[in-house]
Design a protein around this nucleic acid. Structure first.
Lengths: 161, 161
DNA sequence: AACATTGTACAGTTTAAACTGTACGAAAAA
DNA sequence: TTTTTCGTACAGTTTAAACTGTACAATGTT
């Protein structure tokens, strides 16, 4: 009963911590899994995670892979143990920030490339006669949108330092 | 046909721009709506938006309300017109950043309050005899998690300047 | 070599979110 | 006042995402 008490507290922490982690664009399950791993005493196997969170092993496999891709968890080797053991990485702020900032920079650049392409198309179509007001408005706003993306990009790049 | 050409370009812009907007935690439809409004020549009614995006009026009503709550669009008054007219606000970077940063600060504080509460519970349970190692580990990690939230909070507060 | 165990791909199912249509209160028009 | 028109609440439906169970390839064990 006292034992269950710490389990209760552990669960409460997991729930709250997971909510914050979700804000970094992780799914609820990924967030819950990371939070649980972070509180665990030792590296866990897929089966242990599955048991602890009450989700299928397949789910755990996919979730842990996502976390691993984001460099949030680490695969640990222990001799004599065949199963994969995972543990949460520890520098929370640094980990989540860098992964998040990189995501933004990445996405922003993709968008900007696409928008530059469209701007080019628009310049081409200029040479033919089209409704002038509408086209000018479009060009003007497109410039603003591209400028917006430039600002986003440099903003997140500066954060990287 | 040439007319359709600018419409094509407009749609392309909407699609790409919307992807960026979604990153600020807006739903795909909200993002698409804002992007469309931003390119529009004039303030639009719910019916016009509904027609343009091919979605129901109810959807538009809900989406525009969300955008309005985030201060991303403005209700415009025009005499003689009964219907609500909405237009996109123009300072893209400032608008999205402030709304996003506020969201983070807000959420982070809620989490931290909840975690402080849990920390208190944990201190209470200390006085009874429980598995020592497990409890100490929990206390230690909880401290780290709360510290993480403090860092997040001050990070976003500094961005506000 | 035969067998057992592990992680993951895939198809199918369940669950949650997005979206729609009808209905209704509020405000303007007749 | 009666009638029309607007925005939105709500219940029901559709669509998308999350999740599971089975099967299989890869690796380790006997």
């Amino acid at each position: 009963m006292l034992e269950q008490n710490t389990e209760n507290i552990r669960n409460k922490i997991v729930i709250e911590f997971a909510k914050t982690i979700e804000m970094f664009d992780l799914t609820p399950l990924e967030a819950r899994l990371f939070a649980y791993l972070y509180l665990a005493e030792k590296p866990l196997t897929l089966d242990e995670m599955s048991e602890a969170l009450g989700k299928s092993k397949t789910s755990m496999s996919k979730s842990i892979r996502s976390l691993s891709d984001l460099n949030l968890v680490t695969l640990v080797w222990k001799k004599g143990v065949r199963k994969d053991l995972y543990q949460a990485n520890s520098q929370l702020f640094k980990l989540f920030m860098t992964s998040y900032i990189n995501k933004w920079i990445d996405a922003t650049n993709h968008r900007k490339d696409a928008l530059d392409e469209i701007e080019f198309d628009l310049e081409q179509s200029n040479k033919k006669g089209i409704t002038k007001d509408e086209r000018d408005r479009l060009r003007h706003q497109l410039t603003n949108i591209i400028d917006f993306h430039k600002k986003l990009d440099s903003f997140f790049r500066e954060l990287k330092q």
